[in-house]
Design a protein around this nucleic acid. Structure first.
Lengths: 189, 189
DNA sequence: GTCTATACTAAGATAGAC
DNA sequence: GTCTATCTTAGTATAGAC
């Protein structure tokens, strides 16, 4: 693990608190206490409380955007692409479960970056939908209602941040495979 | 629709605001504005801001508890019970999508009712897990990792509150069937 | 880089008139 | 049942010393 500067430490502690109580309920004094400094000192490293949220959420959003862009360019079947998307979620989430909580629950407090965030999310979902649609067209995927399919997969993948921390040792490969099996192949015999 | 008293109106408007910005970010003045009264007037109908949250979350929690208790008593296969659980989620959620947002995201602000809420939730999940386990034992359900199975189904069902409002006309039966098909039978051909 | 002191704003809630 | 006025506490943020 590389050495963290003070600002990165703040982002990490803030993400932890934001996950526990939500962005709005966390005060700069709470954050300062956990950093073992006074609230005023925080402002030597960050511009504002909202600026912390922006860094946490947008850096993750951009990781998803880049990952998805790589996947859609691949020369692979739709099912293969879906498996890669699942793996992308497991990977990013396991690296930063706390940040994922903010991404999922506190995006509405992004202020002037809200529209940018929404654009990234919209594009991501659209690419996801396209992969599924292609799979239906090529007869790889059952012709269930496209929207319900997309919603169901996204819901599970977006909730990983709640669940991963509860498991002792997460093996990224193993969890990704398990999820692929369940999300793609179903559960009944 | 039956006539609402003033207090019920407050609960409904509050749930709407809590969904939009989260419990902590909604002020009593926000709530009063949307009720077209002054903040002080709210206190003629409710005890405190937190009391509003408690009513919203606990009434829904108890609906889930009752529904689950009915289902586990049924003389039916595990797959049948799972389908009924899915239907229960669709039904309760479509009746109160805003309240479900609070249930999912703001339970940590319940104060002295937090432990009660956690107990209900723990029992609910345990019953859910038991249904799946019975299905595995009776060879109805694939022997995938039980925890991943439970997590995946619950994630989708708990996220319904985000998704249902975006669909124009939700047919409860139809959506429940679609979800059952996807969650239980899987998506690939 | 952290501190103390403090400005300024807004929050939840109550008292008492109408 | 709603209002105005107000109390008290707590929030984000800045200034300037060390």
């Amino acid at each position: 693990m590389k050495t963290l500067n003070r600002k990165d430490e703040i982002l990490i502690v803030a993400a932890k608190l934001f996950k526990e109580k939500g962005y709005s309920a966390v005060t700069m004094r709470d954050l300062a206490t956990d950093m073992h400094i006074k609230a005023a000192s925080l402002y030597n490293h960050i511009e504002s409380k909202q600026a912390i949220l922006k860094e946490i959420i947008l850096s993750i959003s951009e990781q998803f955007t880049e990952g998805m862009e790589r996947i859609i360019k691949l020369d692979a079947s739709s099912i293969e692409k879906l498996k890669k998307v699942i793996r992308l979620h497991v990977k990013i989430t396991s690296r930063n479960t706390n940040g994922m909580a903010s991404l999922n629950n506190d995006w509405m407090h992004l202020g002037d970056q809200l529209e940018y965030y929404k654009k990234l999310r919209y594009n991501y979902e659209d690419n996801f939908r396209q992969i599924i649609q292609n799979g239906i067209d090529s007869n790889e995927i059952k012709n269930e209602k496209l929207d319900v399919l997309l919603f169901s997969m996204l819901s599970t993948l977006r909730s990983l941040y709640i669940w991963i921390p509860k498991k002792e040792d997460i093996n990224i490969e193993e969890l990704s495979d398990s999820l692929s099996e369940i999300l793609i192949t179903g559960i009944n015999k």
